[in-house]
């Protein structure tokens, strides 16, 4: 692989895709929050209907899918090359000061991938009508899939909620390193702005994680 793409090129693509996937997270979160901020599931169902039928979104969903594939495959290639670069390890574990979550990007990444696969089966394939049947509901006289009911049913299952919360926590760890790391890999380092990028990266990781986590908790305990 290094014959075709340099290590820096791979890291640049990794960063672009990582930042792209973060923007997707923000969009996803804002739609999910409709379930919590609205007394009925109508708004969420309408948004889901829009996301599932709008031609631009349908096209964009393939770009998003490609983004995931590139990020995951490059992540695996980089990790394998990194393991190969040190065939014999140290007897005493390295204790150098370093960015904590950076050491576990492959581990958190693999867990997020498993979560993503489960998530894909539970929601995306159901929404697309590939797996199971989804009841219909009327929103403003229009018949749309009742995705809200599907989400609420899953978030009423304690084990599902626990699994979801753990996966989201791991995603937060991944984002905590990923955000500032993407800027570094893209060469976007500046004495004036980098402290802000680092600070915002931590804030972004926490806010995304907490906001996503609040949804199953509110549905499980309050709704």
């Amino acid at each position: 692989m290094s014959k075709f793409y340099s290590s820096v090129t791979k890291k640049i693509w990794m960063s672009f895709m990582g930042l792209f996937l973060m923007t997707f997270l923000v969009v996803h979160l804002s739609i999910n929050l409709l379930l919590v901020f609205s007394p009925t599931t109508n708004l969420f169902n309408e948004a889901s209907h829009f996301m599932g039928t709008n031609p631009f979104i349908q096209l964009f969903q393939w770009i998003l899918f490609a983004g995931f594939v590139v990020h995951i495959i490059l992540g695996l290639i980089l990790q394998i090359e990194n393991w190969v670069a040190r065939p014999k390890g140290y007897r005493v574990k390295a204790i150098s000061e370093e960015s904590f979550f950076s050491k576990y990007m492959i581990h958190t990444g693999v867990i997020i991938f498993i979560f993503l696969a489960i998530h894909f089966v539970n929601f995306f394939l159901v929404a697309k009508g590939i797996i199971g049947e989804i009841p219909k509901t009327l929103v403003d006289g229009k018949s749309v899939d009742d995705m809200g009911a599907l989400v609420i049913a899953l978030f009423k299952m304690p084990y599902y909620v626990i699994g979801y919360l753990i996966a989201l926590m791991i995603l937060g760890f991944h984002l905590d390193h990923g955000f500032q790391s993407a800027f570094q890999s893209l060469g976007l380092n500046h004495p004036k702005y980098t402290p802000f990028v680092k600070g915002f990266g931590h804030f972004f990781a926490v806010i995304i994680t907490v906001a996503f986590m609040s949804i199953p908790l509110i549905i499980y305990f309050i709704k």
């Binding site: 290094s2 990194n82 000061e97 960015s99 950076s102």
Partner: peptide, 17 residues
């Protein structure tokens, strides 16, 4: 960078160690 890659050094993952 090309020579560094050919020699078999690993990729930077910004651990800052």
């Amino acid at each position: 960078v090309a020579r560094m890659d050919e020699l078999g050094f690993g990729n930077c993952t910004n651990t800052y160690a």
